[in-house]
Design a protein around this nucleic acid. Structure first.
Length: 468
RNA sequence: GCUCCCUUCGUCUAGCGGUAAGGACGCGGCCCUCUCAAGGCUGAAACACGGGUUCGAUUCCCGUAGGGAGCGCCA
C-alpha cells in the first residue's frame, strides 16, 4: 500500500517552529517512501481561525520547501460529511445528544477532582430520552466503560489506556460544527492517511480517536507520536525563548535549509552526521529512528548551522536574500560593490544574512562613523607618515584590485619599517571605521578608490586633531 | 489530584550486555594570522538514584526522584 501522511495545523496563529518539525517529519516520511503528503487546515474552530494564519502557514511551508501533493484541504468544506456521519452514529446508538450545561459540567468536574478522580464526563445523558428545550445539545461518542485501548506507536512502542479513564468525548458542538477529534478521524480516513505523525501531546487523544474509528467502522492508521520541543529552560517553547514563528527566521536572515537541518536533528539522528542536505534527509530518514524523549531548543546550534550553510552556498543563490536584508537595514545596493562580491568576501564571518548585510554597511555609505576606541588605538602619530604615503600610492595605483592594494601596503610598510599589520590595522580603521573586517586588501578594494582616499584623508585629520 | 510519556556531557545526540562511553553546538587553550572570522589541533564536561536479572550492566526489569503531556463545546 502506498504511504500517505499529512500535516494538519489549525490556523489560529503563526506557523510554530515545533509545528514545522512535525510537518518536516511527516513530509520526510512520505518522501522517503515515495508516498503522498497532504496539507489540511483544521479550521473547525471558527472563532479562532483566521485567514492571516492560513496565509502564514502556506507562506512558511513554501519558504521551507515543504510541498504537498494534496490540499490545502479545509475542514470547513467537509461539514456536510461530518453531519452525515454524526447522524449515523446517533441512529446506531453509538453516539447521543448531551444536554448538560457548562455549569453542570464544571460542578461535576470540581467534585471529581475533590474526590481524587480523573475528571471526565460521567455519562449522565447517555440514556436521557427527553430533550431540554433550554439548551442546544452537543453530540457525544459513547465509549466503552471497560477494557482498554492499545496503541502500537512507531516511536513509543506499545502504549495502553484503560477505557474507564476515557470519557464520552464531544464530537459535535451545539451549533452543529464538529470538534477537532471528529474532524481528524473522519478526514484522515476519507483521504486515506496511512501514517499519522503528530506531537506527543496527542498521545492521549489517540486513544479516543481509536474509539471513534471503531464506532465509525474505520481502519486505523499507524501512529507515530513525536517528542516535544521545549524551550531552553525546559518549559513549553514560547515567545520568551526567542523566535517561535518560522517566518521570523526568514526575517532575521536564516536560510530555510539551515532551519530544516537544525530541526531534523531534534529527536532524530544518523550516526555522527550533523549536516544533511534535504535529499540526504529524505534518503536517510525513518520515523523508527526517532527517539522518544523531548529536546530543548538551542538557538546557538541553529546559528552555527546557518553559518555553515551560508559558507557552503553558491554565492548567486544568496543574492536575493542579501538584497532583502540590505533593504531592511537601509542599504542602497547601487551605491557600492556588487552583492556577489560582498557575499564572497564577507560570508565566512556572518552567521545570518542580516549580519552579512550589516557588516558591509560601510561599503555603501559616503560617511561612516569612526569607532572611538579603535581610532584612539590605531590612528596615532607614528603612522601618520606611512598613511600619507599610502594615500599617495593608492591614488597612483594602476589597477585597483586586492593584489595591487596588498603590494602597495607592503611597499609602504617596508619603506617606513613597519610590519604589515602595523600599517594594515590603521588602514582598516580609517577605511571601515572599525577594527574588524575581512582581509584589508580585499576590504579596500570593495570600499573603492574614491572612498578610500577620502577616508584616509579624514583619518589623517583625526591624527592631526589628536596632537600629531 | 488522576492517566500517559520521558531520563547519556550545559544543549543536540551515538550507543543497542563486555567501549579508554564517541560526535556536534557552546566554553577554555594552542596553531594559523594584517583585525575578525573560517580552519586545524587540543582541554574541561555525561550514563538521575535505589534495588534486582546476569559471570558482567549506560544498555533488560521494578521502584524512587525529576521533567513533560493530557484530563475543554481548543487544536
Amino acid at each position: 500500500m502506498s504511504i500517505k501522511t499529512r500535516f494538519a495545523p489549525s490556523p489560529t496563529g503563526y506557523l510554530h517552529i515545533g509545528g514545522v518539525r512535525t510537518a518536516l517529519f511527516s513530509w520526510l516520511h512520505a518522501r522517503h517512501h515515495g508516498g503522498a503528503f497532504v496539507l489540511r487546515i483544521e479550521d473547525t474552530d471558527r472563532e479562532r481561525s483566521t485567514q492571516e494564519s492560513i496565509d502564514a502557514i502556506l507562506e512558511g511551508m513554501g519558504w521551507l520547501g515543504l510541498d504537498w501533493d494534496e490540499g490545502p484541504q479545509y475542514q470547513t468544506e467537509h461539514f456536510d460529511r461530518y453531519a452525515e456521519l454524526a447522524d449515523k452514529l446517533i441512529e446506531e446508538g453509538k453516539a447521543y445528544r448531551c444536554y448538560c450545561t457548562k455549569e453542570e459540567l464544571d460542578e461535576m468536574r470540581e467534585q471529581q477532582v475533590a474526590r481524587g478522580e480523573n475528571p471526565g464526563y460521567d455519562g449522565r445523558c447517555r440514556d436521557r430520552l427527553d430533550a431540554r428545550d433550554s439548551v442546544d445539545p452537543v453530540v457525544r461518542l459513547r465509549t466503552p466503560d471497560t477494557g482498554s485501548v492499545e496503541i502500537d506507536d512507531l516511536v513509543r512502542g506499545h502504549v495502553s489506556f484503560d477505557n474507564d479513564m476515557l470519557d464520552d468525548l464531544v464530537i459535535v458542538r451545539p451549533d452543529g460544527t464538529p470538534t477537532f477529534h471528529f474532524g481528524v478521524v473522519v478526514d484522515d480516513a476519507d483521504s486515506g492517511i496511512t501514517h499519522v505523525i503528530r506531537g506527543d501531546d496527542h498521545l492521549n487523544n489517540t486513544a479516543r480517536h481509536m474509539h471513534l474509528q471503531d464506532a465509525l467502522g474505520l481502519d486505523r492508521p499507524v501512529y507515530a507520536h513525536l517528542p516535544m520541543i521545549l524551550g531552553e529552560d525546559g518549559s513549553r517553547l514560547s515567545k520568551r525563548h526567542g523566535a517561535v514563528n518560522v517566518l521570523e527566521y526568514r526575517e532575521q536572515g536564516y536560510l530555510p535549509e539551515a532551519v530544516l537541518n537544525y530541526l531534523v536533528r531534534l529527536g532524530w539522528s544518523h550516526g555522527d552526521q550533523e549536516v544533511f542536505s534535504v535529499d540526504e534527509m529524505i534518503e536517510l530518514f525513518d520515523v523508527k529512528d526517532v527517539n522518544a524523549s523531548a529536546s530543548k531548543f538551542n538557538p546557538e546550534k541553529l546559528t552555527w548551522l546557518n553559518q555553515q550553510y551560508i559558507m557552503a552556498a553558491e554565492p548567486p543563490d544568496l543574492i536575493p536574500g542579501l538584497l532583502e536584508q540590505m533593504a531592511k537595514v537601509g542599504i542602497d545596493p547601487s551605491r557600492g560593490p556588487a552583492p556577489q562580491q560582498v557575499i564572497e568576501t564577507y560570508r565566512e564571518r556572518a552567521e545570518t544574512l542580516r549580519e552579512l548585510a550589516m557588516s558591509a554597511e560601510y561599503l555603501y555609505a559616503d560617511n561612516i562613523p569612526l569607532d572611538e576606541k579603535a581610532a584612539k588605538k590605531n590612528l596615532r602619530p607614528v603612522v601618520k607618515e606611512a598613511l600619507t604615503s599610502l594615500r599617495d600610492a593608492f591614488a597612483e595605483l594602476d589597477a585597483w584590485n586586492a593584489e595591487a592594494i596588498h603590494q602597495a601596503i607592503q611597499d609602504v610598510a617596508d619603506k617606513h619599517e613597519l610590519k604589515f599589520g602595523k600599517l594594515g590595522q590603521p588602514v582598516r580603521v580609517a577605511v571601515t571605521g572599525t577594527g574588524v573586517s575581512p582581509p584589508i586588501d580585499a576590504t579596500v578594494e570593495l570600499v573603492g578608490r574614491e572612498r578610500t582616499l577620502v577616508r584616509l584623508e579624514k583619518a589623517l585629520d583625526y591624527i592631526g586633531e589628536q596632537g600629531g
